[in-house]
Design a binder for these strands. Sequence first.
DNA 1: CCGCGATCCTGGGGGC
DNA 2: TGCCCCCAGGATCGCG
Length: 281
Amino acid sequence: MPELPEVETVRRGLAPAMEGKRILRVETRRKDLRFPFPENFNQRIEGAKLTLMGRRAKYLVAELSNGEALIMHLGMTGRFTVHGKTSGRFHHDAGGDEKHDHVVFEMQGGARVVFNDARRFGFMDLWPADSLETYAPFAGMGPEPISNEFSGAYLHAAFKGKKTPVKSALLDQNVVAGLGNIYVCEALFRSGISPKKLAGAIRRDKLEFLAVEVRKVIEEAILAGGSTISDYKSTGGELGYFQHAFRIYDREGEPCLACERPVKRIVQSGRSTFYCAACQK
DNA sequence: CCGCGATCCTGGGGGC
DNA sequence: TGCCCCCAGGATCGCG
């Protein structure tokens, strides 16, 4: 489920159950996800209070009272569910019984927060909270697309001289952080730019459009609670509904919403790209 | 520096 | 029903 809007939706779902609460106990049911859990993972977080549930790009960053930051990535299929008597929406069962439930956090206040990840591309890590900028994936990472730093001028500078297709450039987390395959396709369609166009060859005025559409599609998707693909559910079991607002993603062969010509699908750097050859130049 | 393919995993869907 | 192949929201690494 996880591009920026989905991760932000998860963050908002976890915050009421975890923020300001002590982590009473952590159950890790295997020694690794994508990577091994860090050394003494359980001991290092049990008993600590989770002071802030934050997010950077597609990473959840939970700051703990002991100075550690618990960094969590959902990979492709990672999902969190909140169980028990907590404020807000939650599952009324005990939780932790599903296939691929790998980690269970027992929180002060009674919530059980369960991490499930079928493909195990997700991971958890610990890093000093006061030097997150030195955490390898964050070093060199581009701005958030909904930040003031992100603009047409920024893209103009970031794309300067780049001979890579704009689709690949936007997927590069060091250019802009948090976009993935779906929202890149959507933003390129909305701004009328071909995914094959070389990043460095796009006119400045088009980059202004692109920056605006990237921001808009991400903001709209956050408001919709993210996109639900397959049977993804957010922390309380509710579905995001932005998938109904897809204008180009996963619409191969269907009529373009602007010109009615069939939507094309190509593969770029191993990922599907959906676009309209007539509307995107 | 760049694009590309392979890779880490499991599951769902379509074709036969 | 079963089997096989392809596909999937991510990200890294090695190769040419």
